[in-house]
């Protein structure tokens, strides 16, 4: 296969765009497209201080790399969740994240759950109803709380995550299967800041997971290949596989599923934009972060158990 831009040997075939690219053109194309979507969705400007949530995986490290290439002021945040499961998952992902930051002389915040709160995700999950079946729910709550806390405490303008199109399409698929109206209304590449909640953006939302893996490999980014041991066999992984089966038969299917959802939402298909359901927020009396839960926030309730 030949590169659509230069005619050289292609290293990736993106069937949804009917386009193959060589290494050099792909490594130029992906950051350019990222910049295009940052501007189109008004995610942030070069004046903004960005906090990138990094996990040691391909997507978040690639995002941090791209934001550096594009000249943005982006620091990293790694949350040590204490997941071991016999493979030292958290330790290895932290090592790779620190290596990435050190090699590029980047500023990295590290929150260690054990040091800060005397616990870890597996322990929290085993103690709470929220995580009894799967720790992913408790883990998500911890990450959201800590990301917002660090963004607020250190005065960042925006919190960026490495969600790719496959992540977003799998979430959309899940929310659609359950017709979860509140979540459908809130799913977007940009969530505005409000009432103490940091502005959240997903600059990679238009790229397939496969493109992000190719980008990381071609850039020589050393990332953790293993997925989280608790995510193996998860419903989100199953949904990704289902969507990939569809994609294999109909190139572009998962991109259209998500991008046309955004278009439909913008047109008010799900609700008039003016009648969007937004829960009332108040400040948690324990940690001072915004919450819609009665009295204490879910994070503090979980920690108190």
């Amino acid at each position: 296969m030949r590169c659509k831009k230069c005619g050289g040997k292609a290293v990736i075939n993106m069937r949804q765009h009917n386009m193959g690219l060589c290494k050099d053109d792909f490594l130029q194309w992906l950051p350019e497209q990222t910049q295009k979507f940052i501007e189109k969705y008004k995610m942030f400007t070069p004046d903004d201080k960005i906090l990138v949530a990094v996990s040691g995986g391909k997507d978040s490290l690639a995002l941090w790399d791209i934001l550096q290439i594009l000249g943005y002021q982006a620091d990293g945040l790694y949350i040590a969740l204490g997941i071991d499961e016999g493979i030292g998952y958290s330790a290895e992902s932290q090592r790779l994240t620190e290596k990435f930051a050190n090699e590029r002389d980047l500023n990295l915040h590290i929150v260690n759950l054990a040091a800060s709160y005397g616990t870890d995700v597996p322990t929290l999950a085993s103690q709470t109803k929220r995580g009894r079946d799967k720790p992913c729910s408790a883990c998500g709550l911890v990450k959201r709380h800590e990301m917002n806390r660090i963004a607020r405490d250190f005065g960042y303008d925006v919190l960026a995550t490495g969600h790719n199109l496959d992540d977003e399409a799998a979430i959309l698929f899940s929310n659609t299967l359950q017709w979860n109206g509140d979540y459908l209304l809130r799913q977007a590449p940009v969530l505005a800041s409000r009432d103490g909640l940091a502005r959240k953006v997903k600059p990679l939302f238009h790229f397939y997971e496969r493109e992000m893996a190719a980008y990381s490999l071609l850039r020589g980014i050393d990332y953790i290949y293993d997925e989280c041991p608790f995510a193996e066999g998860s419903t989100s992984t199953q949904y990704k596989e289902l969507l990939n089966q569809l994609e294999n038969q109909h190139p572009g299917a998962k991109m259209h599923f998500y991008v046309k959802f955004l278009t439909a939402k913008k047109k008010g298909l799900f609700a008039e934009p003016t009648t969007e359901i937004v829960p009332d927020l108040h400040l948690c009396p324990t940690c001072g972060q915004p919450t819609s839960a009665a009295n204490e926030c879910s994070f503090c309730k979980m920690m108190a158990k």
Binding site: V11, Y208, A214, E241, Q245, N248
Partner: peptide, 17 residues
Amino acid sequence: LPESVICVRDGDLITED
């Protein structure tokens, strides 16, 4: 599924053809 993997030969990414 081709969508679920990246193919590498001698350290270089290769396409499915």
